[in-house]
């Protein structure tokens, strides 16, 4: 009994501290700030407000993808198809919007109005998400294999539609509006603002809604969640559809920004989205992680890569740096949590 009392007192102290999740998120945020300051010392002209803005604005696409990927990881599932979907939806949007009478196959499309083309492209993206869901939920194939397959499937369709290159002619004049619209009289473009809104909504959903709760429950203990009346299958289906829709939107915005549908766009974005989630402390086993953490993970990655560029390292350093960053993040997280629970 005394043992229990002592344990109780120790736990009382513990309760005043942060939850594990907030602890890791703060660590990640701290690491992001520390890295930025370190880079400011090492790299000339790094310490500028514009640089901070750029870290975010240059990475809106990956951060947006990271939201869906993070939710899925928290529920215990991978999604590596997002990069392929970015290419697919962009290509589809362009194809649907191109006017019907072009000079050759690559310059003629379906002649849809821009908005309809974009909606249809989004539906196409969500179909890939539906395939993910069917294979993972109904057939119970491991999500890593399924989404590697759909990654190739989506990109493959994009390549077929563009005959391995891109479509960029015969587009309606309003096609480039969404991706290039600047906001609030600054140089910040609409996609960046949408990303910010997405992050806010995602944080709200994750922290404050039943949907967010269920995502954690499924990842933490799928057996107990089913016995507690959670429809795991249905929830994971929704998450895959959501992730695919976000990737689809990113692809459409990129297509609008560049006024082209390029079949190699979004290459390796699925890995970057996974990398920033892992850097942000999302646990691969599920049930642990946060969108905020993912966001700071993206900042870490962006700081490291842009500092590397500032240090006149060749862009080829990016893969090595990513590998080292993820390795350190995973080891640090394991170590920090082990110490905390010791």
């Amino acid at each position: 009994m005394t043992d229990q009392a002592i344990a109780g007192r120790r736990l009382a102290e513990r309760d005043n501290r942060l939850s594990d999740e907030m602890f890791i998120t703060s660590l990640v945020a701290g690491a992001a700030v520390a890295l930025f300051l370190l880079a400011s010392i090492l790299v000339p002209n790094f310490f500028q407000f514009q640089n901070v803005v750029n870290l975010v604005t240059n990475n809106w696409a990956v951060i947006s993808l990271g939201v869906g990927v993070t939710f899925l990881l928290v529920s215990g599932n991978f999604d590596l198809s997002v990069g392929g979907i970015v290419a697919l939806s962009g290509v589809l949007a362009v194809w649907f919007a191109q006017s019907t009478e072009g000079a050759n196959a690559l310059s003629s499309g379906w002649g849809m109005p821009t908005w309809l083309a974009m909606v249809c492209a989004l539906i196409g993206a969500m179909l890939i998400g539906a395939i993910n869901a069917v294979f993972v939920v109904a057939l119970r194939v491991p999500s890593i294999i399924v989404t590697l397959g759909t990654m190739m499937l989506a990109r493959g369709i994009a390549q077929v539609v563009t005959q391995g290159s891109q479509r960029n002619t015969n587009l309606p004049s309003d096609f480039g509006v969404l991706g290039n619209m600047t906001m609030f009289g600054t140089s910040i473009k609409l996609p960046v603002v949408l990303m910010a809104v997405l992050i806010l909504v995602a944080v709200f959903v994750e922290r404050k809604t039943v949907f967010g709760r269920l995502t954690y429950l499924i990842g933490a203990n799928p057996v107990a969640s089913r016995l507690s009346g959670v429809d795991n299958a249905r929830h994971v289906i929704k998450l895959y559809l959501f992730s695919a829709a976000m990737a689809g939107a990113v692809g459409i915005l990129l297509a609008s920004e560049f006024k082209s549908g390029f079949s190699n766009r979004g290459m390796l974005m699925e890995f970057d989205a996974l990398v920033i989630s892992l850097l942000g402390g999302v646990a691969i086993a599920g049930g642990f992680g946060s969108v905020i953490g993912m966001f700071f993970g993206a900042i870490i990655l962006a700081t490291v890569t842009s500092a590397a560029t500032g240090l006149v390292l060749s862009p080829d350093w990016q893969f090595t740096l990513k590998a080292i960053a993820v390795f350190i993040a995973i080891m640090a997280q394991t170590w920090a949590l082990a110490r905390r629970h010791a």
Binding site: V141, M151, M152, L153, R155, G156, Q159, V160, T162, Q163
Partner: peptide, 16 residues
């Protein structure tokens, strides 16, 4: 340019 599509489809079919 059909190659990626075919390999991806084959991977899904093989897994299923």
């Amino acid at each position: 340019y059909f190659q990626t599509l075919v390999v991806g489809t084959a991977l899904l079919l093989a897994a299923a």
